[in-house]
Write a protein that binds this DNA or RNA. Structure first.
Lengths: 220, 220
DNA sequence: ATCAAGTCTGAAACTTGTTCTAGATTAACC
DNA sequence: GGTTAATCTAGAACAAGTTTCAGACTTGAT
């Protein structure tokens, strides 16, 4: 009930707060161990294989401590997604997309991201399901992930500094579509080919808002 | 584990199977009571208020029976969504959208659907979260809901008999966006205004595939 | 009407997320 | 070095989804 409240009030250490207190070295290590164990368990058996007791044991941390760092399983998995996305964003930066139009570049980037997640489908499933299952109490963390995704897309568009509201709307739509197709694919309800088509379809919106219909949006 | 398997093999009565056996009158009633109780509980407190024991008690059915009809809480809520969507589709049919272009009509319809769900936000939350949280074992039911949504959108487009693959892709993207914005709004992570903008943005894809860019797609 | 097969009930048991408690450990500060 | 507050641990306890089981009830076919 007032779970989020209480925690926000009481949790002094590792987790979320307006200004998180510095975080000891050992604490950083613990947090890392937890996220690592989570990802490992998720890779093996997806969402349901990530069991809090197991995560605690694997990361050599007491159950209570795990809950102090991540107030719920969903928080834990969303944090894992944040972690993985950071990695992914780094990778993507190193080899920028080559398409002519912004839409091409975004589609290419998203399919690349899709491919990366595909390599560990169960991990992807665990993270994606947590992300969409998250309720209000996880909003800050979900928003963080959302901002990351937005950043990735804007990067692919060519690193605009001040996107217009229309562009941001298009980016949000692309984001939604990306996540939904991911989930649909992970649930075995669609083919990879259809995923690609749909990603390309939605990316048309990028060009549409980027330079108006009919025009080209090439990058120097 | 083999839960879905076993159930598919063993569940003779009410639920899913290749060809569902006819379903007695009393069974139809039971099923109806269950769905009604579910919706009622969901209206009050959303996803977490739908507790299987409560549903069973409210609908005057043993817990085991509830599980025979709906093999999990997610199945139950997805079935509830199907039920509600059927109602909604009926309502929408009665007053077709008035926009000029297919995109306008779809956007209008979706906002209307959004409005309908808004009236019972907790019920909407429960259903939407179940829908995206569903795993493979619920795929058939989720697909059914998806087909319903597709039908609503195609209706709004003007009841095409044989949509092109491009159109279907656009429809899928619109669908994904609709559900995602719904969830995002229910979680309090976005405003109604932004929802409207995003819906309108994605609906541009409809016109784009309906008659090619620049042309008009009016309906007789 | 009766029998067999399938259904429903009630209650207990099991699983896993979450909370709570008491005591040991650590970190910061005097 | 000692004190105090915060943190961590181990483990019990609780909550809600799911499973199981023995027995009562329905239904359909004979």
């Amino acid at each position: 009930m007032t779970e989020a409240d209480e925690r926000a009030t009481q949790a002094p250490g590792p987790a979320h707060r307006a200004t998180t207190p510095p975080l000891t070295e050992r604490q950083r290590e613990r947090r890392g161990r937890i996220l690592h164990a989570t990802a490992q368990l998720a890779c093996r058996g997806g969402f349901e294989a990530v069991q809090m007791r197991e995560v605690a044991e694997s990361s050599q941390v007491a159950l209570g401590t795990l809950y102090r760092y991540f107030p719920s399983k969903v928080h834990l998995l969303v944090a894992t997604m944040h972690d993985q996305l950071e990695r992914l964003h780094g990778t993507l930066r190193k080899s920028p997309p080559t398409g002519e139009t912004a839409a091409d570049r975004v589609a290419q980037t998203l399919m690349r991201a899709f491919g990366a997640l595909q390599r560990e489908p169960r991990l992807a499933e665990a993270m994606a399901r947590a992300l969409t299952f998250a309720d209000r109490s996880v909003s800050p963390e979900v928003d963080q992930v959302s901002r990351q995704t937005t950043a990735i897309i804007l990067d692919a568009m060519g690193g605009l500094d001040n996107p217009t509201p229309e562009q941001l709307s298009a980016v949000r739509v692309v984001e939604h579509t990306w996540l939904s197709t991911l989930i649909t694919w992970l649930a075995g309800r669609t083919s990879l080919a259809q995923v690609r088509v749909d990603i390309e379809t939605v990316c048309r919106l990028i060009d549409l808002t980027d330079a108006g219909p009919g025009e080209r949006a090439a990058r120097p």
